[in-house]
Design a protein around this nucleic acid. Structure first.
Lengths: 129, 129
DNA sequence: TAAAATGTTTTACAGATGTAAAAAATTTCT
DNA sequence: AGAAATTTTTTACATCTGTAAAACATTTTA
């Protein structure tokens, strides 16, 4: 039962945590609040829930400037691990497990740049053999 | 606000409805219950909620064998439409909108058959130019 | 040292979701 | 017609989510 479900709102904060690997509540808030308009407390609640879910680790640390005691978070699973788990369940749920239909869909809907198309084809070639 | 959110449990019944295009509650139950172990009432609740969400249409019709009055459901949106909407939000949420990273992920994780790889490359070629 | 600032924890609360039992309505059977 | 069967509708209820206010604890500052 590793990697519990991450909800929509939680993904937002997870991405920020992954980008820093180790980040204080306040710094998460500083990034998330402007782009979501959420209250700082909302972000804190999400961080706490992620800890409860065993997805983040938290410890206390004194701030550098001011010596307030801060909560600092670190991810317990890599972004890739979580993406993987959630991708699989999405594939199953929405496309009934049919990867190639899913891929076709995203290719058509994804206006890729020529670069990206090329890169992807290279990937595909590697799997050919 | 067309196409409200379809939940995990609801997708299961939606797939069945799409496969038939027009199907009675009992027939949905006949398919869904064995593969999920849910109670028939659970399936009915889901059908009702899908109607409330404006995703399914329901009408009454007398059964052929027995003349009980049955609820018969039809989808108001195509499977592709719903997949599309949910794919987009998944892409945004989990991969931060980066289609090519998503694709790379599924290609690696999706053990495609050589056929499927070929087909996909053909798709990509079409988009090249 | 008392007030202000800052950060954390607790509590809240409505709506969504998973899951179904209980009740009601309708049809069939004896 | 009354009982049994079948189907639908209502009600239920715990947990999860989104969203935060309120309360509390700790530092800093006046």
């Amino acid at each position: 039962m590793s990697v519990q479900k991450i909800t929509d709102a939680e993904w937002k904060v997870m991405h920020v945590v992954w980008n820093h690997q180790r980040i204080s509540a306040n710094d998460v808030i500083a990034e998330v609040v402007p782009e979501t308009g959420w209250s700082p407390n909302t972000v804190r609640t999400l961080l706490i829930r992620l800890v409860e879910k065993g997805i983040l680790h938290v410890e206390k640390e004194r701030g550098k400037e001011k010596e307030y005691l801060n909560s600092v978070y670190t991810p317990l699973f890599s972004r890739e691990e979580c993406e993987s788990v959630h991708s699989r369940s999405f594939l199953e749920r929405v496309f009934g497990g049919d990867t190639s239909r899913l891929l076709a869909h995203f290719v058509q809907d994804g206006d890729l740049t020529p670069e990206q198309v090329k890169e992807l084809k290279k990937q595909l070639d590697k799997f050919k053999k």
